[in-house]
Simulated assay, not measured.
Amino acid sequence: MKRVIGAGLLLLPLVLSACGPMSLAEAERQCFERARLAKQPRGEVSVGVGSGGRTAAGLELNVSSDFLLGKDPSAVYETCVMNKAGEPPSRPLYARPDWR
């Protein structure tokens, strides 16, 4: 029983650290994707022909609630980064060179 409690106490800092804020860089990376989905849906269509003439088709569409609600991608980005990292983004979304 003491071993179980001792092992639990050793793991407690790891569990609690998972609840804390993430690094600013990681938060910006994750939130950039969320902002992209707020701008417009993303998707892909695939069509192929296999052996024996069999065809296959697929459709994948990602639509976010932020897009459906008409939220500004910049506001989505800033709020997301603040929630994940506990601090504002290092630069606004529209100032990022990779934003189109």
Rank of each mutant, 00 (worst) to 15 (best):
R100Q: 10
M82H: 06
Q30D: 13
L68K: 10
R29Y: 11
R3M: 15
P92E: 07
L12Y: 06
L68I: 12
A38I: 01
E60P: 10
I5S: 10
R42N: 14
L9Q: 07
Q30M: 15
G52A: 01
G20M: 14
K2E: 14
W99D: 00
V49S: 06
S90T: 08
C19N: 11
K71R: 12
L16C: 06
K39L: 09
P89K: 04
D66F: 09
M1N: 13
R100G: 09
R3A: 14
P88C: 05
R34F: 08
P92L: 11
S51L: 12
L61G: 06
L10P: 03
P97E: 08
G58M: 08
A38F: 03
D72F: 01
R3E: 14
L37T: 01
G58A: 12
A25Q: 01
V49N: 05
S64T: 00
C19H: 13
N83T: 10
G20V: 14
N62S: 13
S65R: 13
L24Y: 01
V45C: 10
R29E: 11
L69Y: 11
S17D: 13
L61P: 05
A57I: 10
T79R: 11
E33G: 13
E33W: 10
K71Q: 08
R91H: 12
E44H: 13
K84L: 14
K84V: 08
F32A: 00
R100I: 11
C80E: 01
L69N: 07
S65V: 15
V45L: 14
L16M: 08
G20Y: 12
N83G: 06
D72C: 03
G86W: 02
S74A: 11
R100A: 09
A75H: 05
V4S: 15
P89S: 08
D66P: 04
L12Q: 03
L93S: 01
V76P: 00
R54L: 09
F67H: 05
P97K: 12
G48C: 02
E26C: 10
A57H: 06
R36C: 02
M1W: 15
S51T: 13
I5G: 08
G58Y: 06
C19S: 12
Y94T: 07
R91P: 05
G43R: 00
Q40V: 14
L14Q: 12
Y94R: 11
T79S: 05
R34M: 09
I5R: 15
G50Q: 06
N62G: 14
E28L: 00
A56D: 12
F32N: 02
A95W: 03
E78S: 11
S65D: 12
